[in-house]
Design a protein around this nucleic acid. Structure first.
Lengths: 230, 230
DNA sequence: GACAGGGTTGAACGGTCGTATAGAATATTG
DNA sequence: CAATATTCTATACGACCGTTCAACCCTGTC
């Protein structure tokens, strides 16, 4: 092992890391099923045999990718924790070197992978913490079901990411844009969202009318409203 | 052409329709990339050659499926229109013979297809109409951006459908269940949703604070809040 | 019965996939 | 420098893909 570092850091790091990054890029660009061993090898400038030599199989490569972005998100979370409460689920990913992680996440959110499930659970945990902080600091209203509220807000956020092509077509806003927060079109997305988050959607009369329909078992005064579902 | 109807309607209808239905079922069950001509042929009890004889290619089959569910949704809309306002985007699909249409939609929502885009646009149009009715009837608050609000609510709903596996894992609610509205676990999903839609998420103070940040060009009084994004 | 003629079949073709493996290239060590 | 261990490449193989096509069956007509 040579003790001197070369003038240029060769390319990236180990061949294994280069292959993994190439796979993430490939999945982010063209989806998981279109990501073949040969294409990954081509992007990583290695031979097709090398990619499975390092990861055993394509499933192994996919798992390694999932685990890697999970690790990055976990690491990034530490930095976020010291910067106060943040409601935006994507902020952690957006600041992370503007890599293809958002696009990767959007591509893999739909198919069921244990690592992706763990990642989503992680986001929900974060959201629940942030929401609790928001409630404590007086920014957010308390909820009868804090966990459920965190789940729904996370699913809405991640679902918007998964359907970002529709959002772009309908709103002109690319949720994948690394510098979204400075985009002039952000208002088209944030306006309605903040409006709903701000004043709600139902009128007070209607909200009162539906309040006790889907309430969890909570001993408040409740007049029985027999039929008002959907 | 015989003028009498057989005692049993043979199987379904034409072979073409049987193949199309088999493809929809197959995509709903295993996704679009896992749906091969041979599997569709197997489900439809025909030969692999027959499926492309009827649709030209697998892309043609896929397009025919998209167009078919679009047609069904359009047809279903007519019935809905005569039953008053309805905020639930899925109701139109849920009542439609409990077929695999919801699962099909969940599978194809992410990939970009012209027919799927048209379908989503259709949902947004419906939502906008329903929201306007809701505002008019006093159930819903008016919006500064009715179209944008309809888009976001639709994306949230469809995104939840696309990520229904996560919702099921985290909430115990299967958004795909044809009789969801009678499920005892519905409250885990509807509770937080109705809470947010009812009273909102932000406190009045915080809502006032962020009101004019992402407001569309609207001449209300606005004190300049230079930096408060994210 | 002979005979078209279209819906249907099943075998076959070219292509791409994931993966295995033998050998070349490269690094490591004495 | 020789020997060896390691990494990578190139090729090969079997499986499965979408698609084609000659034969086949089945129905209706002369």
């Amino acid at each position: 092992m040579s003790s001197i570092r070369e003038t240029q850091p060769v390319d990236d790091r180990s061949t294994r890391a280069r292959i993994r990054d190439a796979a993430i890029q490939c999945i982010a660009d063209h989806g998981v099923t279109a990501t073949t061993a040969r294409k990954v090898a081509d992007v990583a400038d290695v031979s097709p045999g090398s990619v499975i030599h390092h990861f055993g199989s394509m499933d192994g490569l996919r798992a390694a990718c999932d685990e890697y972005v999970l690790e990055i998100v976990r690491k990034q979370k530490q930095d976020i924790l010291s910067s106060g409460p943040n409601l935006d689920v994507f902020a952690a990913l957006r600041n992370v070197e503007a890599g293809p992680l958002m696009a990767y996440l959007a591509q893999v959110l739909a198919d069921d992978s244990a690592a992706v499930a763990s990642l989503v659970d992680h986001f929900v945990d974060d959201a629940e913490g942030y929401l609790a902080q928001g409630v404590e600091s007086g920014m957010l209203k308390p909820s009868r079901d804090p966990r459920g509220r965190a789940v729904m807000l996370t699913i809405w956020g991640l679902g918007s990411l998964a359907l970002h092509e529709h959002a772009k077509r309908l709103l002109g806003v690319d949720l994948m844009d690394p510098d979204l927060t400075t985009s002039p079109n952000l208002a088209a997305y944030a306006g309605p969202v903040y409006e709903i988050y701000g004043k709600g959607l139902f009128t007070d009369d209607f909200a009162e009318h539906t309040r006790n329909v889907f309430a969890p078992t909570d001993n408040t005064d409740q007049t029985d409203e027999p039929e008002e579902a959907t």
